[in-house]
């Protein structure tokens, strides 16, 4: 290797180190703080890593209901994901495969609906839920979340439907399958990875939703993680240790799911964004 090549490699590693330092340092600090004792947290210029690791912060956070919030968030996020996938797989197939009047308009309105700020929709949806007596109940959140989860799922799934060759489906039709049979037996199995990626994306967005959750839920036992952590654990003033423990716990499921589906999620985004 010549001097120039070594310099180039060195520069590249330097770039990566700076990049990682910026993105990873705060994360590492969040996790390390969650294992520190109060004495170490509340020291000016304290150490980056705890000198004595302790689970005390996690005990405090779970005693304040973190476990219950985790279960609530799971219930809401899984329900929303199932309903949105069910609706979106049908409509996404229609806008990707079938040709009909108004198809383009539906695609455009799906994007447009994504641009409407949720802060505009929250008051009317709140009033509707109040009238339906659904406030402070999980279905109110699941229904409200469909406003953004369905359109996103339709766009995501579309890229996966478009990647399935129509000839395969045509062949099944020629072999005597009905449109429905061809869809269920031929198309669906081929887009299972796409369904998983889309489902994970919906799950992750719902998992972190804050505005509707703090507005609709009033019973502490029903709080989802974002609402509960803000209204309950955060309210214990500046118990930074417990707050960082809660922040760490709520970040684990999305991070793990992302690592599992990284490649497919990226391709979903890339094609939803027009990259071929």
């Amino acid at each position: 290797m010549g001097a120039a090549a070594i310099l180039k490699k060195g520069g590249q590693y330097l770039g990566i180190i700076l990049l990682l330092a910026f993105f990873v340092t705060p994360l590492a600090w969040m996790v390390s703080t969650s294992f520190k004792s109060a004495a170490e947290i509340y020291t000016a210029n304290g150490p980056f890593f705890p000198t004595h690791w302790t689970l005390k912060n996690y005990q405090v956070a779970f005693a304040a209901g973190l476990g219950r919030m985790f279960v609530n968030s799971t219930i809401v996020a899984v329900s929303t994901t199932v309903v949105s996938l069910l609706f979106a797989v049908l409509s996404s197939y229609a806008v990707s495969r079938l040709i009909f009047r108004g198809r383009r308009m539906i695609l455009v309105s799906m994007i447009l609906s994504q641009l409407i700020p949720l802060s505009v929709l929250i008051v009317p949806i709140y009033q509707i839920m109040a009238r339906l007596n659904l406030l402070d109940q999980f279905p109110s959140l699941v229904i409200a979340y469909l406003t953004f989860s369905i359109p996103v799922a339709v766009w995501f799934l579309r890229s996966f439907f478009l990647s399935v060759s129509p000839e395969i489906e045509e062949a099944a039709r020629v072999d005597g399958c009905s449109l429905f049979q061809a869809f269920m037996r031929v198309v669906i199995p081929l887009i299972v990875p796409g369904l998983a990626a889309t489902g994970i994306y919906v799950f992750v967005t719902v998992w972190q939703e804050l505005m509707f959750a703090i507005t609709f839920l009033t019973t502490p036992a029903k709080y989802t993680l974002p609402a509960g952590v803000i209204l309950f654990i955060g309210q214990h003033g500046t118990n930074y240790g417990a707050v960082m423990a809660a922040a760490t716990v709520m970040s684990i499921p999305p991070s793990v799911l992302f690592l599992l589906m990284q490649k497919r999620l990226i391709s979903g985004f890339a094609s939803a964004g027009g990259i071929k």
Partner: peptide, 15 residues
Amino acid sequence: TFIPWIMPGVAAGLL
């Protein structure tokens, strides 16, 4: 590098 984007905004805000 991707974790900050995927983690909840509430967690990032508290951090």
